[in-house]
Computed example of a mutant assay.
Amino acid sequence: MFKLSFRQRAILIVVLCCVLFGLLCERALWSRVSLAVSHPASVPTHTTAPLITTVSIPAEQDLFIPFILAVPLHTTVTWWNDDMITHIVTTTAQHSNFLNPQTFSFHIPAGKQQQITFNEAGLYHYYDSTISTWNTGISRVEAKKGTPYYPLAMDGIIWVQGPINGFSASAVNSVIAGHDEFAHEFVAIHQQGGVTWHNLDEDPHFVGLVDGWTAPINPTDIGLYRIAGTDDTPGGASITVLFNTPGLYYYYCRNHDQVDSLTHRAQALPMASEYPVPMEGFVLVEPI
């Protein structure tokens, strides 16, 4: 009978161990592959940004952050007062079928909060009547001197999204003669409608969107439009802008305002006739 030497037996044992180890590794590998096939890795899904339903009042700034807040109908909005003084929040004196359909007024003590549930769609323009004033001459909120972000007023807008009846396909706005201001701060039309601006002032003015906002606020760029004044065109020039995408459009005149990079708001320049009130406006475009 053939006998293996001690050296040969040792080599054979090593070879058998290697084969056995290889088989075990192969089995483990195929088990992992089978597991991966049976339970594939979850595919990341697209998630939308969480809905913001809070307006903050930062300490010693006399501002509402964000300036514009868009929420669905029946949303409860919370105002947080992180300041060291009490603030008063109240809607402006303007009312229409889409502007301030509900009125409110309340105090928020330092370090406290206040909530309101909005059950009517529309735009709600509010301000702090202790920090800013209501200019009855031009129907605008005006900042008081000495506030930290003067000439920015302490006002804000809640856009409650939902169906609103009574919109037309067109609206007309104008630049007031002798004033660096639009006649109407808020206009509304339905989708695929247009807004016409007529310049009754001597100087040229511009209409362009305020940077820094995302849909549904300024959902698409409308371009930049120059409107010649009465010094250039007898009676003043007009421009018409068509709005095919629903949303809230926030615009300003770059001749008399600049955009504040912190708040993304139009801020009046000292040379503007209505300073500290900015030359800004809003177009609400409702879906058909």
Rank of each mutant, 00 (worst) to 15 (best):
P40R: 05
P40F: 02
P40T: 01
A41M: 04
A41C: 01
P44N: 07
H46K: 13
A49M: 12
A49D: 12
P58W: 10
Q61K: 15
L63N: 05
I65P: 05
I65V: 15
P66H: 09
P66T: 06
F67A: 12
I68M: 08
V71E: 00
V71Q: 00
L73I: 14
H74K: 10
T75D: 02
T75W: 02
T76L: 01
V77N: 06
V77W: 08
W79P: 04
W80G: 00
N81S: 03
M84P: 00
M84A: 14
I85D: 04
T86I: 10
T86A: 14
I88P: 00
I88A: 08
V89T: 11
V89E: 09
T90D: 02
T92P: 03
A93T: 04
A93N: 06
S96M: 02
N97D: 07
L99V: 12
N100G: 00
P101S: 07
P101D: 07
Q102S: 11
T103I: 01
S105M: 03
H107C: 03
H107N: 14
I108T: 10
I108S: 09
P109E: 01
Q113P: 02
Q115A: 10
I116C: 03
I116A: 02
N119Q: 11
E120Y: 04
L123H: 05
L123S: 08
Y126D: 04
Y126R: 04
Y126L: 08
Y126C: 06
Y127K: 05
Y127H: 08
Y127R: 07
D128G: 03
D128W: 07
D128Y: 10
S129C: 10
S129V: 08
T133N: 14
T133Q: 14
T133A: 15
W134D: 06
T136G: 06
T136I: 13
G137K: 12
S139N: 13
R140S: 14
A143R: 13
K144V: 00
P148G: 12
Y149R: 13
